[in-house]
Design a protein around this nucleic acid. Structure first.
Lengths: 233, 233
DNA sequence: TTTGTAGCATAACATCGTTAGGTAAACGAT
DNA sequence: ATCGTTTACCTAACGATGTTATGCTACAAA
């Protein structure tokens, strides 16, 4: 018989796989996109450049793996914010969590949501669907705002998108260095969210109260130091 | 005398300079960031790669030139929108102009505002100041909204930043392919701006009227086909 | 123990931005 | 008009990039 399915491979080492992703993520975070190369990664991992191809099929595959890790981090960040009886404050804390995550992983964020192509990689529709899915927490939170009578009756998905878009724009321009002293990112964040919340139906008084409550919760529910983040290169 | 300031140079050809910028811009727009290389540019221009260095000091200098051209295009786009007695509609048309320009020059826009580093280029503080300056039109328009009693008394610069951030976030996620069918970019644009305008003090009725007026003006004041744009690669 | 598949290293390829060396052209001064 | 100097510009090369071809060899199944 010709089709003798002889077997006797040699398994892939999962430790090497995760090590490669970790090293690549660290290189990206510490030295930026330019510093991400197969040779540097292989050198740090003590392997040859071929490892990147056997485990990920190329640089793009490795970047995709990092992007998925980035989405996982965002989800973990979201999971830390509590659900209270003030759903508007909950939404605001989620916004802070989103912004914090973006700044803590700025280079990765640029690839995930900023449309930055890294080493020839670009997101597939599946990747984007993965990214959109991380926003289900926000949609649910907006639903509770509507149920609580704080937001006008509207499609929660649409309102969540408004908040996402605004926060994304804020973070993106902040990372780009565009929001400076007279109109810095913190001031913009505050005003932008206040405006949107009032715009979808909340009263200015209730909005102000929820914003104060959210600011009090940020320290404990989003991360240690709110703005301790590596500066842009 | 030793310091004989003998003169006799050979002038740079301004035609070659502009040709290089044009070719580079076309390559960027048609084939994306990856296709932008000194060799391709030189080949199309009929020169050698050295031209890029004599005229721009390197690839970064050429990219900087393109970025400035991008800002100029945005300003020209803004200059096309009229100032009417409905300043809120004017602001909305400016937003459409911003979005149109971003989509018509998507790759360049990503470098200008999206933080995308192209061929090792990254914006200087001077470049960013140049970019911020293009928003003076928006600030002035917001001032007129306040004077007309449509917007609550507030810092026009701050309100203009809110609108900028929101529109930038919208455009960026749209270019990234994140805004799809149930909640597409057009719907988000409409809702986001409506929310913000109401949030800064306008009544829902007046806002709706101005939005309708703005949508009517878009065709003639921003560009031919509102959404005829190369799809994302 | 035998055997063959597949991980992995070495080395080569094409391409990239950039630089060095040499040539010729253009302008001010004579 | 001629000269001299300066500078644009081409050719060739360098280092570094992602990727691929060619083996060697370790490992798991028989």
């Amino acid at each position: 018989m010709c089709n003798t399915v002889k077997v006797s491979p040699r398994k892939l080492d999962p430790e090497i796989r995760t090590a490669l992703v970790d090293i690549a993520a660290r290189l990206l975070a510490e030295h930026g996109a330019e510093a991400l190369s197969t040779r540097k990664i292989a050198a740090e991992a003590g392997t040859s450049t071929m490892a990147v191809y056997t485990y990920f099929g190329g640089m793009s595959g490795l970047v995709r793996e990092m992007v998925h890790e980035g989405f996982a981090r965002l989800e973990r960040q979201f999971a830390r914010v509590r659900q209270t009886d003030d759903p508007v404050a909950d939404v605001l804390v989620l916004g802070h969590a989103y912004r914090h995550n973006a700044k803590a992983n700025s280079h990765l964020y640029a690839v995930m949501f900023g449309g930055q192509s890294l080493a020839g990689f670009s997101l597939t529709e599946e990747d984007r669907q993965y990214g959109r899915y991380t926003l289900v927490d926000v949609v649910g939170c907006v639903s509770r705002c509507v149920e609580a009578g704080r937001f006008r009756q509207a499609d929660p998905l649409l309102v969540a998108h408004q908040l996402w878009i605004a926060t994304h724009g804020l973070v993106n321009l902040e990372l780009g260095g565009y929001l400076v002293d007279p109109v810095d990112a913190d001031r913009c964040h505050e005003n932008l969210l206040r405006g949107l919340i009032v715009g979808v139906g909340d009263t200015t008084e209730a909005a102000a109260k929820s914003m104060a409550a959210a600011n009090r919760r940020v320290r404990r529910e989003v991360a240690g130091a709110p703005h301790a983040v590596e500066p842009r290169r």
